[in-house]
Amino acid sequence: MPQHKLTQLQELESESIHIMREVVAEFRNPVMMYSVGKDSSVMLHLARKAFYPGPLPFTLLHVDTGYKFQEMYEFRDWYVKEVGAKLTVHRNEDAITKGMNPHEFGVARCCGALKTGALLEALEKGGFDAAFGGARRDEERSRAKERVYSMRDSFGQWDPKNQRPELWNLYNGRIHDGESVRVFPISNWTEMDVWSYIKEENIPIVPLYYAKERPMVERGNHLIPASEGQLLLEGEEPKMVMSRFRTLGCMPCTGAVRSSATTIEEIIEEASIATRSERETRIIDHGSNSMEDKKKEGYF
């Protein structure tokens, strides 16, 4: 191999760092969404690289629904401290107090209140004009058409038919008062890239990604964790299943997969032969245009 050549992961890394630095240079008050998942872990790691030797020039924002796994809260608090980042947690306390949940109110309403609603509230409260998100274009087909800089109006809404063209690596960061951008620095990464990078860089991730005997119930095609705090339906009996999570969301709506992958190498091996996409275990994505619709309303 010639001397002056980057591997594809190194090239992706360099591109992501470039995007983050552009945002910090051109926006008044950026924030980084931190969802505690593997993509967030990678994004946070890239941010540390981008601004080294200085500290992170923005805070992390976790939009918490109250339905996350205990392991996620523990990991979040430990890791944020470990890397010396500042973290803000925002919850839609009003909806949580009223007992919002996906079973009674439906997935769409629950997500709308606890995720999209809370997100828009948090962005407004913080006065953020740019928010980094860890979404990737390979995740879902409406995301395949999203820009690195995704323009949002003052309601946080996305207009898929009216996106700014994005040329070369020149990102147009000019916005009007009240508008904001969602920025996706790992747009061009695939699930496999994320796992490979986690391995190469030894990035810590929530233990839920590794296979273990866990209490589960089978609900339709989904393997639903019967962890503490989970709402079980009538007649559901938890049993121990060797399983892990490919993506992490809220407990009621995130399915697990049967797996024996207990190391990062085994996870990569599993991902390389996977025939089903990772988002299949996310109940929120199902329905005809559900991701596109949610994004139009202000979701990431």
């Binding site: 087909r141 395949a144 747009s187 061009n188």
Partner: peptide, 29 residues
């Protein structure tokens, strides 16, 4: 249908916008 990501495109059977796709072989991404 796999590549036309937006609802408007599927309805009209046209491609409106640039879509980014990813695939890899043992040699390249």
């Amino acid at each position: 249908q796999l590549t036309d990501g937006l609802a408007a495109e599927r309805e009209q059977g046209i491609t409106i916008d640039v879509a980014y796709r990813y695939f890899a072989t043992p040699k390249r991404k």
